[in-house]
């Protein structure tokens, strides 16, 4: 799509573009390039000499069991959060889409957690599940569960999953509701006339028609879990106990901290960049399809 009429001249548009291009190059392309360059280098312990080592950092990385562990953690974490938050918000959106009293009030009451910072969401849940005096952990203890997320890796994982899901429900709810509202009512009526009960209508008419929204949300949720949950993890568990909640992004941060293993951290950054680019490309391909749909 192009404009039919435009202004003439080169200098003004160049001037208008300079600020954004400058910021983009200095704070985006230079660091990204730097990360790539660093991933081919090894720095000695004092940071005085660096040598070019080719793919050595990558080979080292793929030899380490910790890296596979972080991959597994990320996989479990993102699958759980995406599945839980998508199912809960689809249920809520379906209910809010019925012609009921107070539908807009429900919407307002459900969307605000989007505005809560991930780290703050983490702190809220940490407080409820704090082993010695948290409200929920006390209830769990009296029910006979030996709840302790600071020692038990599975408990810690459950905790970050709950906080991350809680925060993501509002976002998914909004998009599901918009998706549901765009489904023509006549289709649902037609299938009702054919005798389809509500459950059947949902699975054979509504759910398939909603699939573009669902696919879009799956990609968005995975990206969310990959990157935005950093604050949740850092505030709640710091990747522990015993690295049970260390995701790929958290590992980039932890390995490079205090100039630790900059080359290895950079190699992990590059792998993550490739993953995000693949996911974004997938998402754009899907958006192309949505236009025709």
């Amino acid at each position: 799509m192009e404009k039919r009429t435009v202004f003439a001249g080169y200098s003004l548009p160049a001037l208008l573009l300079v600020p954004q291009l400058l910021i983009t190059i200095v704070f985006f392309y230079m660091p990204a390039g730097q990360a790539m360059w660093q991933s081919f280098q090894i720095e000695d312990a004092f940071g005085t000499t660096t040598i070019f080592v080719g793919f050595e950092n990558y080979r080292e990385l793929f030899k380490k069991p910790e890296y596979y562990k972080a991959m597994g953690t990320t996989l479990v974490f993102s699958t759980a959060v995406a599945f839980l938050s998508l199912s809960i918000s689809l249920l809520l959106a379906t209910m809010a889409n019925k012609q009921i009293r107070g539908a807009t009030a429900y919407k307002t009451l459900l969307i605000w957690p989007y505005a809560v910072a991930p780290a703050i969401a983490g702190v809220l849940w940490l407080f409820m599940f704090q082993p010695s005096m948290g409200m929920v952990s006390k209830a769990l203890k009296s029910a006979g569960v030996d709840w302790n997320p600071t020692l038990n890796g599975n408990h810690a994982m459950l905790l970050v999953i709950m906080a991350a899901t809680w925060k993501q429900i509002s976002y998914n709810f909004l998009f599901f509701l918009a998706g549901l509202q765009s489904i023509p009512h006549s289709l649902i009526e037609a299938s009702a006339i054919d005798g389809a009960r509500p459950m059947r209508r949902f699975w054979t008419i509504i759910f398939p028609l909603l699939s573009p929204t669902t696919f879009f949300l799956i990609v968005v949720n995975i990206t969310y879990v990959f990157f935005d949950t950093f604050g949740i993890i850092d505030a709640m568990t710091g990747g522990g106990p015993a690295k049970a909640t260390e995701t790929l992004v958290y590992k980039v941060f932890a390995d490079g901290r205090l100039g630790g293993d900059l080359g290895g951290s950079a190699a992990q950054s590059v792998i993550l960049m490739i993953m995000v680019i693949a996911m974004t490309a997938f998402q754009f391909k899907y958006i192309e399809r949505k236009v025709s749909y």
């Binding site: 983009t24 990157f227 935005d228 992004v249 980039v252 951290s265 950079a266």
Partner: peptide, 12 residues
């Protein structure tokens, strides 16, 4: 730049 959040290029 849409594709890369600041988290992946944090140290550089």
């Amino acid at each position: 730049t849409l594709m890369l959040p600041v988290e992946v290029r944090i140290y550089p």
